[in-house]
């Protein structure tokens, strides 16, 4: 088991290196650098001014060298001013004039040129805000999906099953930007129960009124999928021999479902729930933009829109890490939960 986890962690590390390399390449494409230079100097800068700015701030250094600087394998060099004197690259991030080893490996994610602060100071509060949102989404989505799935799957082909299956199919057909619009129209514009914006959740704290719609919107899309997986798993378990035995020895249906079927039926959904995280990440971005909640998704959009290189790299690192770690947890967890699976 341990060697399995070690091997998976190795592959994960390799994947992260490859991916950051790809992202690094894409954000450093010539037109992207030009866009960054334009926002950093002024929007009417000439081609020479742009070139000189990029040259002086080290964006013209060899690609691999800059990747190594970002990773923390090579000392970061200061920028130089027009006279060739060393100046700190971005003073608002506390950069120094002396070259020093300061990259991801040392815990320094670089400097956000859009928010004029270090990436760490911007990214971690945003992640915390998104974490809160995710927590509530999970609290709504998982129990809801499991209940729907189990109710539908325990009597295959019944009226409840068919109704709930159609509901589940409907929810998988409703992406966040559709359900967000529909919920806002019904609950905010017409009924006026909830806020159509979660902007006040960032400034004045989370309340039932401003947080319900984002959570509902985000939960609905994933719920149908998990419910369908739970149903399939439940249907399979209910046809197993030991369930028939339990029924034949005279146990009541409710006891059979709760005591015998449920435990085995919930193994498969566990994997599915874990693999939902990458999907939720996209949903988070949609919901945070739609409901103006300042979390990870909002940060990502701002970083991408302004070609904020270090912040975008930081965001990619975080999201790729989340995707890979949830995959790992789902594999390891599955092996733990299901005694029939043995990994070599």
């Amino acid at each position: 088991m341990l060697s399995f986890i070690a091997r998976r962690l190795g592959v994960m590390l390799l994947t992260m290196i490859c991916l950051t390399f790809v992202v690094f390449y894409l954000v450093n494409l010539e037109p992207n650098l030009k866009k960054l230079a334009l926002t950093q100097t002024n929007s009417r800068a000439t081609q020479e001014q742009i070139d000189s700015w990029l040259q002086r701030y080290g964006y013209r250094d060899p690609f691999l060298l800059r990747y190594a600087e970002w990773m923390g394998l090579w000392p970061k060099q200061p920028a130089v001013d027009a006279q060739g004197k060393a100046i700190p690259r971005f003073s608002y991030c506390g950069d120094t004039v002396t070259p020093r080893l300061s990259g991801v490996l040392q815990g320094d994610f670089g400097c956000s040129t859009k928010f004029r602060t270090t990436v760490g100071k911007k990214l971690f509060p945003a992640l915390e805000a998104t974490g809160i949102l995710m927590f509530w989404v999970m609290m709504v989505m998982i129990p809801g999906a499991l209940i729907i799935g189990v109710l539908a799957g325990m009597r295959e082909g019944s009226k409840t099953d068919r109704t709930l299956s159609v509901v589940a199919i409907g929810s998988t057909a409703t992406p966040e930007y559709v359900s967000g619009v529909i919920f806002t129209v019904i609950f905010a514009t017409w009924l006026g129960w909830f806020n159509g914006s979660a902007a006040s959740a960032t400034s004045r704290g989370i309340t039932f009124v401003n947080f319900t719609l984002p959570v509902m919107t985000l939960a609905i899309y994933g719920m149908g999928y998990i419910a369908r997986m739970t149903r399939a798993s439940m249907v399979e378990v209910m046809t197993a021999q030991y369930i028939r035995t339990a029924r034949l020895k005279g146990l009541r249906f409710r006891a059979v479902v709760l005591k015998h079927a449920l435990r085995n039926a919930l193994i498969a959904p566990f994997t599915v729930i874990m693999l939902q995280f990458p999907w939720l990440l996209t949903g988070v971005v949609v919901v945070e933009i739609m409901f103006r909640y300042q979390g990870f998704g909002y940060t990502l959009v701002e970083a991408a829109g302004n070609n904020d290189i270090d912040l975008l790299l930081g965001c990619s690192l975080v999201s790729v890490f989340i995707v890979l770690i949830t995959q790992l947890i789902s594999d390891v967890g599955y092996a733990f939960l299901n005694p029939r699976i043995r990994v070599q």
């Binding site: 494409l29 992207n32 990619s316």
Partner: peptide
């Protein structure tokens, strides 16, 4: 394949779909 799948779709889109690209 796993490399591409490890990218959240939205990040992929922001990197791959822009006038600059």
């Amino acid at each position: 394949a796993n490399l591409v799948l490890a990218f959240p779709v939205i990040l992929l889109f922001y990197l791959l779909v822009s006038p600059e690209i």
